[in-house]
Write a protein that binds this DNA or RNA. Structure first.
Lengths: 135, 135
DNA sequence: TAGTAGTCCACAATCTTAGTAGGATAGTGT
DNA sequence: ACACTATCCTACTAAGATTGTGGACTACTA
């Protein structure tokens, strides 16, 4: 399951996508409209900024905005960034790979199945962008 | 990601599948062969027993064994039992559904995508059984 | 230079995960 | 009946993740 943090991140990004090219949006505005705890949202947006998804402007007239156009930000990227691995097993993850202890990948029945699950999931989340979230 | 507990559960079930119809298997044997902490494994097997996946026999010559044949135990069932929801969002889960707070499911962009992810995943894990884990 | 708004660091409460301890209970063989 | 064996059960703990909060600092704008 996606963490609350991830769900908040998507709600915020959704909001910023809808307001894309309308200039910086206040954290407080996003927090209020999307009902996200203000300080928690601060942390999340800062993280997204450090990952080059968002950019910000300080002072009056400031706020957060998308750094790239919404079509260019994949859902998979956000999940990996905020939530972590998409795969169900470490030994199957493309971005967070870890060798299975006491389990030979070549003869592990779970392994192959989880590769399939991973690919089925990626086929969806790698091909959707923030733009697809706003209908 | 599947928890360690879930991974242990699958390893144990894999072992019991391989030994299906060979009579009860000691917890200690499974723990040793699959390198799972003994007492932790006890809890896991007990849980699987309560869920009617396993059955057990006490005393000398006792141990654990599959209650049903391996072909009849779906991977999805085990994941839900030991790990929890398969879906990425509560509002998309079939077995652990919870309404989304502050988010209308009909107009939530994430919702529809996560329904797709769920279905793609279920298509795999609902159609594989313990038998498929042992190659 | 006053006010606004993001930045950054540290902390805290709560929950989950991963395991451990030890005795109770029930079945087996002699 | 008795000793032995193996599961059953409750409770506990330590560590880590999650979900926040508080407060000072920095940068920008008018």
């Amino acid at each position: 399951m996606l963490s609350k943090k991830s769900q908040y991140a998507f709600k915020a990004l959704e909001y910023l996508t809808a307001k894309y090219k309308e200039g910086p949006v206040l954290i407080s505005e996003i927090a209020k409209k999307k009902k996200i705890p203000l300080k928690f949202l601060e942390n999340i947006l800062l993280e997204l900024k450090k990952a080059e998804i968002l950019d910000s402007k300080k002072g009056k007239g400031g706020g957060y905005f998308l750094k790239k156009s919404p079509e260019k930000v994949k859902v998979a990227t956000i999940i990996r960034l905020v939530n972590g691995p998409i795969s169900m097993l470490p030994c199957v993850s493309l971005y967070f790979y870890e060798r299975c202890k006491n389990c030979d990948e070549k003869q592990c029945g779970l392994h192959d199945m989880m590769v399939e699950v991973r690919d089925a999931t990626l086929k969806i989340v790698e091909n959707r962008t923030l733009r697809d979230l706003v209908v």
